Amino acid sequence: MSKSKHTAEKDIEKQQSEEVKENQEQQVAAEDTVAADEKENVSADSTSEEIDRMNATIAEWKDKYLRLTAEYDNYRKRTRNEMDELRKTAGESTIKDILGVVDDFERALQALEKLEDTAGFDGVKLIYDKFMSTLKGKGVEAIDRVNEDFDTDFEEAITKFPAPTPELKGKVIEVIQKGYTLNGKVIRFAKVVVGE
């Protein structure tokens, strides 16, 4: 009996040893599982952070792209408007120089009108009318505001004169030098006498 007792004790020790080993293996496996879960969590956290960084970068680039597109669109519109304005008033300085000739032309017509021989007058008047219609076709128009309220946007007062009637107070009585506009922009202010 002592041998079988001894064998039974060895079997129990062996069984206990196997159980301890099994427990240790289960503990190691549990620790490995926890470590793997932690790695997954850390990996998931770092992936999440990386995704957030990428999304922020994408949003930043998208914002830059939208701003650049808007700036380019504004630049294109501004340039087009400037070019349109330049086309409208491209000949402004040349037309200003021609206006002096128009003034001389009108004075010559007034002098010819007083002569008895009107044969020359009719020809010159025809040329003058053709010349003025050509200027009008280019956008030049005379400012004619006699008997209208004095407006500093169109006229320059040379002097004030007593108004012949009360209705003409503050109004343009006489034009000394005609004013002109080019496509709606005043290129020469009319020089006028204002009633007071």
Rank of each mutant, 00 (worst) to 15 (best):
T152V: 07
M1H: 14
W61A: 14
E71L: 08
V28W: 04
K14D: 13
A30I: 10
E60F: 09
A142W: 01
K169A: 09
Y72A: 12
G100Y: 09
A157L: 05
D52M: 07
D11P: 00
D84C: 03
Y75D: 08
L112F: 04
L99D: 01
R76Y: 04
F131M: 12
E85M: 06
L66D: 14
I176N: 10
K10Y: 12
V101T: 04
N41E: 11
S2Q: 14
E13C: 05
G170N: 08
T94H: 03
D104S: 12
K64F: 14
T79G: 03
Y180F: 14
K77T: 08
I58H: 09
D117V: 05
A157F: 03
E116W: 02
D104E: 09
V124H: 00
L168A: 04
R107I: 04
V124D: 00
I95H: 00
V175E: 05
S46C: 01
K14V: 10
P166G: 09
T69Q: 13
K14M: 11
L99C: 03
Y75H: 07
F105W: 02
K178L: 06
K64T: 11
D103M: 02
I98S: 03
N147G: 02
Y65L: 14
D104A: 10
D117G: 05
R145G: 08
E22S: 13
L66A: 09
R107K: 15
A90K: 05
T33Y: 08
M83P: 01
L112N: 07
Y180E: 00
L135W: 02
D97R: 10
T79R: 10
F121P: 00
A56F: 05
K136I: 10
T159H: 03
S17C: 06
F105T: 01
Q26N: 14
F154T: 00
